[in-house]
Nucleic acid binder design. Sequence first.
DNA 1: AGTATATTTGCATTATGGTGCAAGTACGCA
DNA 2: TGCGTACTTGCACCATAATGCAAATATACT
Lengths: 122, 122
Amino acid sequence: MTPVQASACCRPIDDLLDPELFKALSDPTRSRLLGCLVKCGCACTVSDVGECCAVDLSVVSRHLSLLERAGVVQSSKTGRTVHYVVDYVRLCRTMRAIADAIEQCCPAEQLPGCARGCCGAR
Amino acid sequence: MTPVQASACCRPIDDLLDPELFKALSDPTRSRLLGCLVKCGCACTVSDVGECCAVDLSVVSRHLSLLERAGVVQSSKTGRTVHYVVDYVRLCRTMRAIADAIEQCCPAEQLPGCARGCCGAR
DNA sequence: AGTATATTTGCATTATGGTGCAAGTACGCA
DNA sequence: TGCGTACTTGCACCATAATGCAAATATACT
């Protein structure tokens, strides 16, 4: 396998396996808030989403802004209230891209003897 | 929307948004180890994978076993050495299932005015 | 049996992150 | 201008988790 081939098939993995995205989804409270927002199916205020969980509203605010920084949700401010919506398109595209990238990362090259030199060769 | 319809289209979300899985992918070192294992494309020993990162081998061992507990990789012991492989099928299936579930969670019901009562109604 | 290699586990240290409370900011309304 | 509402930020506290070192375990080899 040439370097060009290798970078073409495997390079996307590093970008897609973004720890920041997964970190955003790794907290039970955030997971619940996101699930709430997904099921809602429309723009929710911070207070609305907060009713899903028995945590302080400041905690909800922080979690939602973190989810936004991670690209999972989007916010829009109208007056005093802030509405959050799930960025369905981006989130779904990312999840599928990860699956695609993993599968396409040279599956045909899989060898029992680890002929590609494995990780040590990087 | 009846309760039956709601549970049919939205219920999978809660199970799929599993914080434990995402927590496993949320650490930079683990992310790197997993990326290494994906690119390798075959079974790697703990020592092999460890060459990806400048961390102690005991750290690598712990990270890999955590990834296994999360269902991301699988291990097999032969003699002294332990080989790890990515559970491609499971990981890819999960990622796509999340995307499917989010999209199928009542997209047709999305209303600007949040007519479903939003999260507060749960 | 004794030694070397591969991996895991115990332990202490340090870093990170979630939480609640209180205070602050921003905006709408009378 | 003053007050109430929606949200955010500062701060302290606590829990969890990542890390390295040293010791322990397990297995192969001679």
